[in-house]
C-alpha cells in the first residue's frame, strides 16, 4: 500500500525521492572542516515502468544520487521511498549496471549472470533456467561458457545488463552504462535496452551525459545543475513509442526536445564542479573505503 504520510499517495508511484541532500565534510588541515554540498533539494517521483534519464555535466552528483538510490550511500537529509517504503540499504529489488561493466573476470558469462541468484540462495537447478532466459534476452546465446576477456565491450555490457535483470529487480539503476563503447555499438545497445524494457516492464533510472541518449531512451529527462547538484528542470519527452528500430533520432521532434535540453544545460554559465573537491568526495563515498 502506498499511503505513506510523505505525499506518496498515488498507487502507481514506484520511486519517490524526497528532499534529498548530501553534505560532505572535507578535512582541511588549516581551517578545520569545510562542508561540500553535493546534492540539495532533490525531489522526484517515478511511476512504475517509467524510464527516467538524469543528464548534467560530468561529476556533479548524478552518480552520488544513483548510489543513494542503490542504498550504497545514505543521504544526509531526505529519504528515498520504493513502493512507499523507505529504503535503508542495498537490496535485490534494485539492479545496478555501471559504466566499467564490473564483470567478474574469473566467472563465465553464465556464472556472472547467476551471481545475484547465488546471493539470493536460489538453488542451482533453478539458476540455470533463469540465466538461460536472460542470456537469450540480451542476445548472447552461444556465449554462456565464455569468459569476459573473450567478449567485446558491447557484449560485456550485455552481460552486465543480464546480470542485473537476472534476480528480477523491479528497478534498474544504470550509471552511464554505454559510455565506454564505440558510437555504433552504443546505438545498438540503446535499441536493445528499449526492447528489453518493453519485454520486462522495469522501472529504469538512467544516468548519462549524452543528451541524445537521454532523449532517445527516456519518458522524462531530469536536468542536473551543479554546485550544489540539484534538478534544474524535468522535461517530458513526448516522442512516440516504440522508438527502437526506428529512425526517430533524425525526426524533427527529436531535434526540438534535444535542443530544449541543450539550452537548459547552457542557460546558466556552466558551473563545473571543483575538481579538487570532487576527488575528495569520490574517496569519501567509495564503498570500498568503508569495508
Amino acid at each position: 500500500m502506498a499511503t505513506h504520510g510523505d505525499g506518496t499517495h498515488k498507487e502507481d508511484l514506484k520511486i519517490v525521492l524526497k528532499d534529498i541532500g548530501q553534505v560532505y565534510h572535507l578535512k582541511k588541515s588549516a581551517d578545520g572542516s569545510r562542508e561540500f554540498q553535493a546534492l540539495k533539494d532533490i525531489n522526484l517521483q517515478v511511476r512504475a515502468g517509467e524510464f527516467v534519464a538524469l543528464v548534467g555535466p560530468s561529476g556533479c552528483g548524478k552518480s552520488t544520487l544513483l548510489d543513494i538510490l542503490a542504498g550504497l550511500t545514505r543521504p544526509s537529509s531526505g529519504a528515498v521511498y520504493i513502493d512507499g517504503k523507505e529504503i535503508t540499504g542495498p537490496a535485490l529489488d534494485r539492479g545496478i549496471v555501471l559504466q566499467g561493466y564490473a564483470l567478474f573476470p574469473w566467472r563465465t558469462v553464465r556464472r556472472n549472470v547467476e551471481f545475484g541468484l547465488e546471493i539470493k540462495k536460489v538453488p542451482k537447478s533453478e539458476r540455470r533456467g533463469i540465466s538461460d532466459h536472460f542470456i537469450r534476452l540480451v542476445g548472447l546465446e552461444g556465449f554462456e561458457e565464455h569468459y569476459p576477456h573473450e567478449l567485446s565491450g558491447g557484449m560485456k555490457q550485455r552481460v552486465a545488463i543480464a546480470r542485473a535483470l537476472a534476480y528480477d529487480p523491479e528497478v534498474l539503476l544504470m550509471d552511464e552504462p554505454f559510455a565506454a563503447v564505440d558510437a555504433q555499438t552504443r546505438e545498438t545497445l540503446q535499441d536493445e535496452l528499449l526492447r528489453i524494457w518493453d519485454e520486462t516492464k522495469k522501472t529504469i533510472i538512467f544516468v548519462t551525459h549524452s543528451i541524445d541518449e537521454a532523449v532517445f531512451l527516456a519518458d522524462r529527462v531530469a536536468i542536473f545543475s551543479s554546485n550544489p547538484g540539484t534538478f534544474r528542470e524535468i522535461v517530458e519527452v513526448d516522442l512516440p513509442r516504440p522508438r527502437h528500430n526506428s529512425d526517430i533520432r533524425s525526426s524533427a521532434e527529436f531535434g526540438w526536445v534535444r535542443h530544449r535540453i541543450w539550452e537548459l544545460l547552457q542557460s546558466r554559465p556552466s558551473q563545473e564542479c571543483r575538481e579538487g573537491g570532487n576527488i575528495v568526495v569520490k574517496d569519501a563515498i567509495s564503498p570500498s573505503a568503508t569495508i
Binding site: 548510489d67 542503490a70 542504498g71 550504497l72 540499504g89 542495498p90 537490496a91 535485490l92 534494485r94 539492479g95 545496478i96 555501471l98 559504466q99 566499467g100 561493466y101 564490473a102 567478474f104 551471481f115 545475484g116 546471493i119 539470493k120 552486465a160 546480470r163 534476480y167 539503476l173 567509495s286 564503498p287 570500498s288 569495508i291
Partner: peptide, 15 residues
C-alpha cells in the same frame, strides 16, 4: 579491487 565490482556486489545486498 575494482570499486565497480564491489559496488555491484554490494548493491545486491551481499553478505
Amino acid at each position: 579491487v575494482d570499486p565497480a565490482q564491489i559496488r555491484t556486489a554490494l548493491s545486491m545486498g551481499i553478505s
